[in-house]
Structures are given as structure tokens and as C-alpha cells.
């Protein structure tokens, strides 16, 4: 699967990364090379192989429904780039 500049632009938009034209060209080439290497996997027949998501065979890790202390509002907001009246402030959405 050849990677196009259009693909790179689409992916950059999905990943919320502003990219310059030069970056698009560079990433298209670099990611294309890496994908070419990755596609080596295609040589393996995995038709009858179950995917493995966790290295450990674990299941059902549950927690008791017991309240634990929250942070204070000041702690919550302490690293906020912009805060206003107890909230995180963000630019307009539309």
C-alpha cells in the first residue's frame, strides 16, 4: 500500500498536528519507508492465528464501588494553561 501525501494530510488532521508542505513531503517519504518494512509481516500466514492484545492472560479485574478522595479544585486546575471560575477555559468550539 503506497502512502500518498493526501494520506499524510488526512492522518495529520486526524491526529491534530499542523503540518507544513515540507513536512508532508518528508513524512510521506519516511512513513512510506517504514510501512514498506512493516509490510514484511504480510509474508506470514496468519489466517488461523488469534490476535493477542495482552501479553498476560488476565481477566475480570474489578474494583469495589467505594468512594476515594478526589483532588481539590485548586489541584485539578493547578497545571491548567488557562482557567476561569473553577473551569478549564478553551477557545470557541464552532
Amino acid at each position: 500500500m503506497a502512502l500518498s501525501e493526501k494520506d499524510v494530510q488526512y492522518v495529520a488532521k486526524l491526529a491534530r498536528l499542523e503540518v507544513t508542505e515540507q513536512e508532508v513531503a518528508k513524512y510521506t517519504q519516511q512513513l512510506g519507508n517504514i510501512l514498506g518494512y512493516i509490510e514484511e509481516m504480510g509474508k506470514l500466514d496468519t489466517a488461523n492465528v488469534e490476535p493477542l492484545t495482552h501479553p498476560l492472560d488476565m481477566k475480570n479485574v474489578f474494583r469495589e464501588d467505594v468512594v476515594k478522595p478526589s483532588l481539590t479544585q485548586a489541584e485539578v486546575l493547578s497545571n491548567g494553561p488557562e482557567v476561569q471560575s473553577g473551569h478549564f477555559k478553551v477557545p470557541k468550539i464552532m
Partner: peptide, 22 residues
Amino acid sequence: TATKLFCGCPTTFGNEANTQVC
């Protein structure tokens, strides 16, 4: 539930903003 899905913060409605956060 008394607490959130993945942490022990309470689920009470209507409290001051960002006080039920960990």
C-alpha cells in the same frame, strides 16, 4: 454507582465544578 467507572471519585450531581475529579 457510588463511584465513577474507573476511579473512586463520587458521582453526585450538581457539585461545584471540578471538585469530583482525580
